[in-house]
């Protein structure tokens, strides 16, 4: 603490620091997207084909997300099933997700 330190305005982040932080956040996301495009669409297609053998699902109802973390990465597969048939028939089980959702 300098003698006249209290006279100075509180230190705010410089624009260069802001630039660095913005880049670090943005690039973390962009690098995530860089991995995956190679095999994710294929994986999505295969999973859809496998699921279709047992239940009816629309092509656009399967979502795959890859989340890369520092320690672990999670592959999230989200399959949306159609509403169960009307009462009277045995209801189909309704799965929201094959893997627990990463939160």
């Amino acid at each position: 603490m300098t003698l006249f330190g209290f006279l100075r305005r509180p230190k705010t982040a410089s624009s260069a620091e802001t630039a660095k932080e913005r880049l670090q956040i943005l690039l973390a996301h962009e690098r995530q997207d860089r991995f995956g495009p190679e095999y994710l669409p294929l994986l999505q297609k295969d999973i859809l084909a496998a699921v279709k053998k047992y239940v009816q699902v629309a092509n656009d109802k399967v979502q795959i997300k890859l989340q890369r973390g520092a320690e672990v990465s999670t592959l999230e597969i989200d399959i949306e099933l159609a509403a169960p048939p009307p009462v009277g028939l045995a209801p189909l089980p309704r799965h929201r997700s094959l893997l627990p959702r990463a939160t």
Binding site: S14, A16, A19, K20
Partner: peptide
């Protein structure tokens, strides 16, 4: 503080 450092 107007430009990023080399280290950054």
């Amino acid at each position: 503080g107007d430009m990023m450092k080399v280290e950054d």
